[in-house]
Design a protein around this nucleic acid. Structure first.
Lengths: 215, 215
DNA sequence: CATCAATCTTTACGTTGTCTAGATTGTATA
DNA sequence: TATACAATCTAGACAACGTAAAGATTGATG
């Protein structure tokens, strides 16, 4: 934090934050190791004291993205105890929100920018914890009759897969304006999630749950 | 096709095929404009006679990926007329198969490698046609009672989103071996798609539809 | 205070995307 | 048929990139 001494102090995290900033400012195609170093105020080789190579740096940024989502998911789960439906919807919304608020950080994190050959322990741990949280949530939803019973891992893949694809398609502009003009993103998400639920919502007075009357 | 004259004859398509080959051999991180040119047997600047830049070349490869999927979808739809369920499953399977057979071509095509700012007419046309085919299929499924009635565009997003995420998660190795050891990919897909269907399949004697007895 | 490992800089190399100028060719026009 | 032209491809150059090696600077340890 001294910002002036030869030794930075916490360059590793500074580089991660600088990387996130560059992703936000210039997008994923403007992302380069040298630019990140410049943003952090160090030479282009300085990162190599903390990351083996560019891939390792991307893995660290990805890990940070997972951490954010994981923490927010835990937050909403604690916020709505004994309400699996609400937990289900808000967890999905956490994922979707992150995708729209920080599209390129989201892509780096969840869209396979990291090579899976080499294993980055911190990243593997975060992906595991995140998937576990989702699986536990799925199990609670199954027990309360919201979701079909069945292999929780498979159900988790189904749900995660859907939410991921949902963000992706909207980001790519593949959803027609017929739809995007009629519904907010949150409404679209809930309407879509509805197809997974055993007892579908049609209308719900809880904040943000109003889907419009009729169809 | 002369392979020796100064003018290549059909370099544009040769470059697209060379690009697909490089994606298959070296993956997406080994992909470069110069390598594609080398593979096609021309100089590194030759592609600029046919593509404005690297992005335009990626867009062309992406368009080719869409074309493949679009044609295969049309094929299975014609193969099973008056059987929306089968059309639904096989269409999903076309998408998933492409993802597993040509993972990096799939990524280039469907995972947002193309910048959406500039519009590439051929690509826009193919994405539109593909989405239309899906929407028509969805409508047929709704009419036959297989899917919930409702905004077809939104249902199409839900289904496409799910299938896309499905491929993505398996490619990233996020599905536990508990699941992947028990089911084939096709079984996993069908079991997951099951959650969308109004009258779920439990078991089905038709080829490839056997999901294993019991759960 | 001396030593040492961690951290950061400097310099260098090969590769990449892209630009410019020029060479080669098929095709249309006269 | 000869000529002009536009399309196509080559050759060379440039800045930016990822990465490696060697050296400078620093905080921590003894």
């Amino acid at each position: 934090m001294t910002e002036k001494s030869y030794h930075h102090g916490d360059l590793k995290n500074a580089l991660i934050q600088a990387g996130i900033k560059i992703l936000a400012d210039e997008g994923i195609e403007g992302f380069s190791l040298r630019k990140v170093a410049r943003e952090a105020g160090v030479t282009h080789s300085a990162p190599y004291a903390h990351f083996a190579d560019k891939q390792a740096m991307i893995a660290a940024i990805s890990t940070d993205g997972y951490r954010k989502v994981y923490e927010r998911i835990n937050a909403v789960i604690e916020q709505f105890p004994d309400d699996p439906l609400r937990q289900f919807i808000e967890t999905a919304w956490v994922y979707v929100s992150f995708g729209f608020e920080e599209p390129d950080h989201f892509k780096i994190t969840f869209s396979g920018s990291v090579e899976r050959e080499r294993e980055y322990p911190a990243l593997v741990e975060m992906t595991g914890k995140t998937f576990d949280a989702l699986r536990q949530l799925i199990i609670r939803c199954q027990k309360s009759g919201l979701l079909d019973s069945g292999e929780p891992d498979l159900a988790a893949v189904t749900v995660w897969g859907f939410v991921h694809g949902f963000v992706h398609l909207i980001q790519e502009g593949m959803v027609s304006h017929v739809v995007t003009n009629r519904y907010t993103k949150r409404e679209m998400l809930i309407l879509s999630l509805n197809q997974f639920l055993k007892s579908p919502l049609t209308e719900d007075p809880r904040d943000g749950f109003i889907l419009g009357s009729g169809k």
